Simulated scan of single mutants.
Amino acid sequence: MRKFKMLFIAALATLAFVGCTAAPIYNVESNSVVSNNETNTSLKDVEKAIIRAGAGLGWVMKKVEDGKIQGVLTLRKHVAVVVINYNTKAYSIQYQDSTALDFNPAENTIHKNYNTWIQNLNKAIQVQLSML
């Protein structure tokens, strides 16, 4: 009986741990473009900073149009796709698509690692912008 209780508790703990992998999707909304450049920062400068930041973390960054970049991160079988809208004053990072990340559109949740990747991308963009 004691062995059964221990197995039951272990099974519950495992289920609780596995259930904690989903989190609400983290989007970056209107982060300010802050640079050390005393003159006005150009749209091209912001574009280059965003592309450098993503590339440095393994994202494939592609300019879709002026003010819009698509970023794709592929790690093993997992793929995250974001759209980065930007101007000379602010930028936003929005979820676009994913593969093998347990995206649930009804609950707007995704594997928690996705949020870490977006937070890291956001930090890298801020660093690149600060070096302008």
Results as ranks from 00 to 15, higher is better:
residue 31 N to E: 09
residue 69 I to V: 15
residue 78 H to S: 13
residue 66 D to K: 08
residue 58 G to R: 02
residue 102 D to Q: 09
residue 44 K to Y: 12
residue 16 A to F: 13
residue 79 V to S: 02
residue 66 D to R: 02
residue 38 E to G: 12
residue 48 K to A: 10
residue 76 R to L: 15
residue 95 Y to T: 05
residue 91 Y to A: 09
residue 29 E to H: 13
residue 10 A to G: 07
residue 25 I to S: 04
residue 29 E to Q: 14
residue 8 F to W: 10
residue 38 E to N: 14
residue 37 N to G: 04
residue 75 L to Y: 10
residue 13 A to N: 11
residue 65 E to A: 15
residue 111 H to N: 12
residue 103 F to K: 05
residue 109 T to H: 10
residue 117 W to M: 10
residue 61 M to A: 08
residue 51 I to A: 01
residue 53 A to N: 03
residue 88 T to D: 08
residue 74 T to I: 11
residue 52 R to V: 02
residue 110 I to F: 07
residue 123 K to W: 10
residue 91 Y to T: 03
residue 116 T to E: 08
residue 2 R to D: 12
residue 45 D to Y: 00
residue 31 N to H: 06
residue 16 A to Q: 07
residue 106 A to T: 14
residue 97 D to C: 06
residue 65 E to F: 04
residue 125 I to V: 12
residue 59 W to L: 00
residue 35 S to K: 02
residue 34 V to A: 13
residue 50 I to D: 04
residue 68 K to Y: 11
residue 24 P to F: 10
residue 78 H to Q: 15
residue 29 E to N: 13
residue 45 D to V: 03
residue 130 S to N: 12
residue 107 E to F: 08
residue 54 G to R: 01
residue 121 L to A: 06
residue 10 A to C: 14
residue 61 M to C: 05
residue 32 S to N: 09
residue 43 L to C: 07
residue 79 V to W: 04
residue 84 I to D: 00
residue 48 K to P: 01
residue 42 S to A: 07
residue 107 E to Q: 14
residue 26 Y to Q: 04
residue 124 A to G: 11
residue 128 Q to C: 05
residue 92 S to I: 06
residue 77 K to Q: 14
residue 48 K to F: 04
residue 128 Q to S: 03
residue 24 P to C: 07
residue 37 N to K: 15
residue 57 L to I: 02
residue 126 Q to W: 03
residue 86 Y to G: 01
residue 92 S to V: 05
residue 64 V to A: 13
residue 18 V to E: 08
residue 3 K to E: 14
residue 12 L to I: 10
residue 61 M to Q: 10
residue 75 L to F: 10
residue 12 L to H: 07
residue 117 W to R: 02
residue 48 K to D: 07
residue 81 V to S: 04
residue 19 G to C: 05
residue 122 N to F: 05
residue 74 T to S: 14
residue 109 T to R: 08
residue 26 Y to C: 01
residue 11 A to G: 07
residue 54 G to P: 07
residue 69 I to R: 09
residue 106 A to V: 13
residue 101 L to S: 04
residue 89 K to R: 14
residue 115 N to K: 12
residue 19 G to W: 02
residue 95 Y to E: 03
residue 76 R to A: 15
residue 96 Q to I: 03
residue 71 G to A: 07
residue 63 K to H: 03
residue 93 I to N: 05
residue 118 I to N: 02
residue 100 A to C: 11
residue 14 T to N: 06
residue 117 W to I: 03
residue 43 L to R: 06
residue 23 A to T: 13
residue 23 A to C: 08
residue 33 V to G: 04
residue 113 N to I: 05
residue 114 Y to E: 00
residue 5 K to I: 10
residue 12 L to Y: 08
residue 22 A to Q: 11
residue 131 M to T: 13
residue 25 I to C: 04
residue 82 V to F: 09
residue 103 F to R: 03
residue 113 N to K: 09
residue 4 F to H: 09
residue 79 V to L: 09
residue 60 V to N: 11
residue 25 I to K: 06
residue 22 A to W: 09
residue 129 L to D: 00
residue 40 N to T: 13
residue 78 H to W: 07
residue 107 E to P: 01
residue 60 V to C: 00
residue 88 T to K: 07
residue 67 G to I: 01
residue 68 K to L: 15
residue 85 N to Y: 01
residue 45 D to W: 00
residue 116 T to W: 02
residue 75 L to M: 13
residue 15 L to I: 12
residue 66 D to W: 06
residue 46 V to N: 01
residue 31 N to C: 03
residue 14 T to D: 04
residue 49 A to G: 06
residue 112 K to M: 15
residue 100 A to M: 14
residue 97 D to G: 11
residue 5 K to S: 06
residue 83 V to G: 10
